[in-house]
Design a protein around this nucleic acid. Structure first.
Ligand SMILES: [Mn+2]
Ligand SMILES: [Mn+2]
Ligand SMILES: [Zn+2]
Ligand SMILES: [Zn+2]
Lengths: 150, 150
DNA sequence: TCCTAATTAGGAATAATTACTATTTAGTAA
DNA sequence: TTACTAAATAGTAATTATTCCTAATTAGGA
């Protein structure tokens, strides 16, 4: 999902999260918001580099860490070597496409409620559950068509 | 869960999976079976190295890949930089402990059935679901005590 | 405007993994 | 048993993703 949001709104979100709204942070956060495919750090770098050739990879990684720390973005595990990032921090699940390496969002309020209800009773001793995420692994059948939730 | 299995049974499992049962593969697979904490490649290396000083990291990684490919073991994503491995390939979920970096098994047949039933109706267009895994993230409260499912 | 801590650029260093290549081995067939 | 061959391995170099380092710059408050 592409999130349509103005430059100044991004600035405000960064400040509200307790960070200085530097040019680098705004650029990186704005770029990730436009990218709906859970990009790697490298992909984000390639996206912002043409217009911002002076932003270094050191800054990119540190900025991504900062944004994760204040919960403006999320770090997503992947099956390849590198992590991927997500501008959507609302509770949602991911579809991992094993043949295309796509990571797609799967939002399903009904399922969230089922799981919430289930784990309300099913206590795990000595563990405070912070969140529960579903990882749906599968194969995209027709590579010419997109995957879509009915 | 520690899987109690004899050396020759391991050998047979490797052959049944279509691989040559070499000393290296038997040692690596046997080691992982004894380790219930989803170890990293490095941890496995440290475990086998004293008794098998000639097994190289190249062989270890290639062997782990082979065992994953034939579905004798599973590669498990982690929040730190390295992957972790699991001798249990039966469908089960993982508890990720954010403060201790433990990865624990969470087996729950009742939950499996709920999810299976749910996704039987909820079709996702153009996707063949291969499996659905739950990632339970949480914090271990008392570091002196273990986490246990009630 | 001045000050200072925070941030950044640029690049070196590290960690995990993969790639490479010469040597060894397992399994098969003569 | 021996010979053969493809597969596997050891040892190590290379690569990839990420982190670390340090001097310079900057943001934002006094
Ligand atoms: Mn998303
Ligand atoms: Mn296990
Ligand atoms: Zn997402
Ligand atoms: Zn497991």
């Amino acid at each position: 999902m592409v999130i349509k949001i103005s430059h100044s709104e991004i600035k405000e979100k960064i400040i509200a999260a307790g960070l200085k709204a530097t040019h680098q942070r705004i650029v990186i956060y704005a770029a990730l918001m436009q990218m709906c495919d859970h990009p790697t750090a490298e992909k984000i770098f390639e996206t912002i580099a043409p217009a911002n050739p002076s932003i270094s990879t050191g800054t990119l990684y540190k900025t991504l860490d900062h944004l994760v720390a204040v919960n403006l973005i999320a770090k997503v595990k992947s099956d390849e070597g590198s992590y991927r990032y997500d501008a959507n921090v609302d509770n949602h699940n991911h579809i991992y496409c094993t043949n295309t390496n796509e990571i797609l969002d799967y939002e399903d309020h009904e399922l969230d409620q089922i799981l919430e209800a289930y784990f309300k009773n099913k206590k795990i001793k000595n563990l405070k559950i912070t969140d529960i995420r579903l990882q749906i692994n599968g194969e995209r059948l027709d590579l010419k068509k997109a995957i879509s939730i009915q």
